[in-house]
């Protein structure tokens, strides 16, 4: 820093610099190791302790003997059902929002306010979504629907529909942000070319922009599913059940089985939470807890990994397009 002193005895100064440099580099390498060690510790321990439990019968049986034996099939079914319902609600809304923001809104005040709202929504604590689900979806929307449609108490109670809607609000920012990124990556010249051929704005979006952004949108959807499958706090009060002797399935026209969105459900992450904290016999159910955790973490990891690989592939492809 002080040029004079460096000049006066260069040797000593450089040596102490070198030491400091190596030390600081070492320190930063140490810091980087910490998160990776944490990942490997969590994964390793759960795989090690859970792998013995996860068998075919564990995956295909319902809980037995007061939740101390048997499997977790209803939880897997519930998780898949609720995430499907969630993505069916969130995906159209999220894609629509992203399309509007990138193609129609411009860069003005509206854009900035929406941007801030999306970022803020992403930072809302997950338990707040749970409160919102109870206060808005169940008590306001649900009870009023019951009142208007005279359906007794069908909508105004915790059920899969409201849990999925609550989760959809939570994952909306994930979908908006990644769809926006995908849309912005489509070169402006392609839009101009389409418009020059006489296509309207919507035709351009439908025929040119969206097909190219497909990969990025899919990545966002997968990330959203993985996020939704792992969240517990928003569904605590909006439809999750500790134990349900039946699957949330209804026979449509008496024959075609379909997911029943008005039933409660069991779910993997809630199952882990409830077994670990409120189980009748926590010691005895410990293998089930590890097994369930392993199944959940395998599910979210596979989804995340797919999304990451997809995105790398997608970015490379778009990079080539814009080079041509």
């Amino acid at each position: 820093m002080n040029g004079k002193s460096v000049l006066s005895c260069p040797d000593l100064k450089t040596r102490s610099f070198a030491w400091k440099e190596i030390l600081l580099t070492g320190l930063s390498v140490f810091f980087v190791m910490i998160p990776f060690c944490a990942i490997f510790f969590i994964l390793g321990k759960i795989v090690q302790k859970g792998i013995g439990t996860v068998t075919w019968s564990f995956l295909s049986q319902p809980p037995l003997e007061g939740m101390t034996a048997g499997g977790i099939f209803p939880c897997i079914f519930g998780t898949v059902a609720i995430t499907l319902l969630m993505i069916a609600i969130a995906l159209p809304l999220g894609i629509g929002a992203a399309v509007y923001l990138t193609e129609y809104a411009g860069q003005g005040l509206f854009f900035r306010i929406t941007r801030a709202a999306v970022n803020n929504l992403a930072g809302v604590p997950s338990i707040i979504f749970g409160l919102f689900g109870v206060g808005f979806f169940i008590l306001f929307v649900g009870r009023n629907l019951d009142h208007v449609l005279k359906t007794g108490l069908l909508f105004g109670q915790p059920c899969m529909l409201w849990a999925a809607a609550t989760l959809a609000v939570l994952v909306l920012p994930v979908i908006i942000v990644s769809t926006e990124e995908a849309l912005n990556a489509v070169p402006q010249s392609h839009r101009a070319a389409s418009m020059a051929l006489g296509a309207t704005k919507w035709q351009t979006i439908r025929e040119v922009v969206l097909p190219q952004a497909r990969g990025g949108i899919l990545t966002g959807a997968i990330l959203a599913i993985s996020r939704g499958a792992g969240e517990t706090a928003p569904i605590l009060f909006t439809g999750c059940a500790y134990f349900l002797p039946r699957l949330p399935v209804v026979k449509l026209f008496g024959a075609i089985p379909m997911i029943n969105p008005f039933d409660q459900f069991m779910e993997l992450s809630y199952h882990i939470f409830i077994m670990a904290t409120q189980s009748m016999n926590a010691e005895k159910s410990l293998p089930i807890q590890y097994g369930t955790t392993l199944v959940l973490i395998a599910l979210t990891f596979l989804l995340n990994l797919t999304a990451i690989i997809f995105r790398i592939h997608f970015r490379k492809k778009l990079g080539q397009v814009s080079l041509q």
Binding site: I42, A229, L296, T300, F301
Partner: peptide, 24 residues
């Protein structure tokens, strides 16, 4: 290589982290 691995850390459900803290 490092950044996607960090994203995997972000992808661990918080209930799993809670369980690891509680149990181990």
């Amino acid at each position: 290589v490092l950044k996607p691995t960090l994203e995997l850390l972000a992808g661990i459900p918080s209930v799993v982290v809670g369980f690891v803290m509680l149990a181990m």
